[in-house]
Design a binder for these strands. Structure first.
Lengths: 179, 179
DNA sequence: CCTAAATACTTCACCGATGAATTATTTTTC
DNA sequence: GAAAAATAATTCATCGGTGAAGTATTTAGG
């Protein structure tokens, strides 16, 4: 999804604002400000994910593969089980199998059965995997930092706090829906 | 991607906070607060998109199909070309063809060649398509509203303003990268 | 101790998304 | 006016993601 590179997020948002003004007139009770926030969130998040995907593509790596590798890189001893990873990387166990296959093939991780529970697999990052991460990350930092550079430190804190509040709210609403 | 229904966003974030504390020690110059904001954004946005996907699934409709239909619903005369839609719905023209096929099959839109330019197709929402939208939306409003209910009106305005600022920033950084 | 239930991971079939190539049409260039 | 270039949409092949079903192992219950 590298569509944002051709279209400005701001222009998409402008078009959405127009459309929403019209819909507001014809759909009773629509929480228009909440819909707008939803769209702003998903559009900005999507655009940033696209940027990441573009950075990964020359290395022949997909986003979810990268996230899984990053999780291993940042775990206490560079290892984790597929189900643990699936949780934090928000992937199905099916796709985690595909990801593990891919990373093993690249030599970035190893895979072995756990000793204490032979149902479990232990994925462990290799030195090559660590080197790849260490080489891949630094060039991405300047643009990521630039993206948030218009915010003051105080605004960043505010945004972070609000997103954490939103995450809690999402969990609360989701739990309510499961009853 | 309905993974969030099984895992709490807040727990995923907690795990990420741990991992990031470790990575911060071993990757020099990493803009840790910006990475954290990126993850918070993509996780919350992703969780909300999952909620939408779950709502659409019983109706046999995918998110992008829904968004395209909503765009037509909210356009001045219920019509648009595939390339226009592709832009605002952030989809490739390839996928817009798939989406159009799907919506035509459901009877929600019609498709015809433009008179003034036979390269162009005009997609137009049908009365059945309008009825579907009018029936589908209202049940989603309460939970969407509940998700943002913890924010005061002032906070919502702040969040909206910040996300618009972020969108502009993304466009600026993207334009810089294209040079 | 044995059986049923639960768990971890994988396989299979399918869905949604993409880029490259293609076709038809329009616009631009000379 | 003719040819080249550009544009709009579609087709084809491939990738990344899922749920259901299946296999192997462990845990729970009687």
């Amino acid at each position: 999804m590298n569509y944002f590179s051709m279209n400005k997020v701001t222009e998409i948002i402008a078009g959405l604002d127009e459309g929403m003004a019209r819909v507001e007139q014809i759909v009773p009770g629509m929480p228009i400000d909440d819909v707008r926030l939803y769209k702003l969130l998903t559009l900005t998040a999507g655009a940033m994910q696209d940027e990441l995907a573009r950075n990964l593509k020359p290395h022949g790596m997909a986003e979810s593969d990268f996230h899984a590798l990053m999780m291993l890189f940042s775990s206490p001893n560079g290892s984790a089980t597929p189900s643990d990873l699936a949780c934090v990387a928000t992937q199905s166990s099916t796709n985690m199998t595909r990801i593990a296959n891919s990373l093993v093939k690249k030599g970035f991780i190893t895979r072995a059965h756990a000793v204490d529970d032979r149902r479990r697999i232990v994925m462990r990052i290799t030195p090559a995997g660590k080197r790849f991460v260490n080489k891949l990350l630094p060039p991405m930092f300047p643009r990521l930092a630039a993206t948030f550079a218009t915010f003051s430190a105080r605004e960043k804190t505010t945004l972070q706090r609000m997103l954490r509040t939103l995450a809690q709210s999402i969990d609360d609403v989701t739990a309510r829906g499961d009853e």
